[in-house]
């Protein structure tokens, strides 16, 4: 939601295309996430799950209502030239705005992968996730690393919101449209696995699209969740995660 508003404003004021503006959304919301982790979430890292849910849901309510106060409840969308265009490959029509969003997502996934695999901060994030005390013993400031990791996480969400703005309009509660699907994606792929999230995302998208060929479109989430439950019966830890 914040990422979408960020690029909506850069589009409406500076006429920057949302996809080109998406890195900016990432950077701004990265710092928002860093601060939220540092001042709020840091204090409940070891608290019971209930406290963590209260805090994060509470933050969501605050952010949504702040957005409502500042931006109003209007649905805002952008107008870009490629919005209604599509590419024709034989009998297949690919909407350009969907294609660009997909390509942008692939690029950012590649960048995230490279960061985690080869950089010092990427190694530090993996080390802290696997064994925080040991990471401290080799010189990693675990607290700062958590801040950066959380910033990356919400920054990427903002990036994702930004690149879909050409075909989705933004309102303060837009996030809730995606939260259930988002949980489906990460749980389907395997919680805590980057490759799993990518695989889960593609699988969810393909199931939704293909099911609408066979079943009425309003049943697409029903089909998705039936398959989702079936997958979890066979692989309780998700597609790409071993028990």
């Amino acid at each position: 939601m914040l990422g979408m508003y960020a690029v909506w404003f850069t589009w409406s004021i500076f006429e920057i295309d949302p996809i080109l503006g998406s890195p900016l959304a990432f950077i701004i919301i990265f710092f928002v996430g860093y601060v939220i982790q540092k001042f709020f979430i840091h204090h409940i890292m070891k608290a019971p799950a209930a406290a963590q849910i209260f805090l994060t849901v509470g933050l969501m309510v605050v952010l949504e209502n702040m957005a409502l106060m500042v931006f109003g409840s209007d649905f805002r969308s952008v107008a870009v030239t490629y919005q209604t265009e599509s590419i024709h490959l034989g009998e297949i029509f690919i909407s350009k705005s969907y294609l660009y969003a997909f390509l942008a997502a692939l690029v950012i996934t590649g960048l995230l992968w490279t960061l985690l695999a080869t950089s010092w901060i990427g190694r530090a994030i993996r080390a802290v996730a696997q064994d925080a005390m040991m990471a401290e013993l080799v010189g990693v400031n675990a607290t700062t690393t958590y801040n950066i990791a959380f910033g990356l996480g919400v920054g990427l969400t903002a990036f994702g919101g930004a690149v879909i703005l050409p075909y989705i309009s933004v309102s303060p509660t837009i996030g809730s449209h995606f939260s259930v699907l988002m949980f489906t994606v990460v749980v389907l792929g395997g919680l805590g696995s980057v490759a799993g999230a990518l695989a889960g995302g593609i699988v969810v998208g393909v199931i939704q699209s293909l099911s609408s060929l066979v079943f009425p479109i309003h049943l697409q989430n029903l089909i998705l969740f039936i398959i989702f439950i079936a997958v979890l019966v066979v692989r309780p830890n998700g597609l790409l995660k071993e028990g």
Partner: peptide, 8 residues
């Protein structure tokens, strides 16, 4: 207990 980072 060694504490290697197992998935690295």
């Amino acid at each position: 207990g060694r504490h290697v980072f197992p998935r690295m």
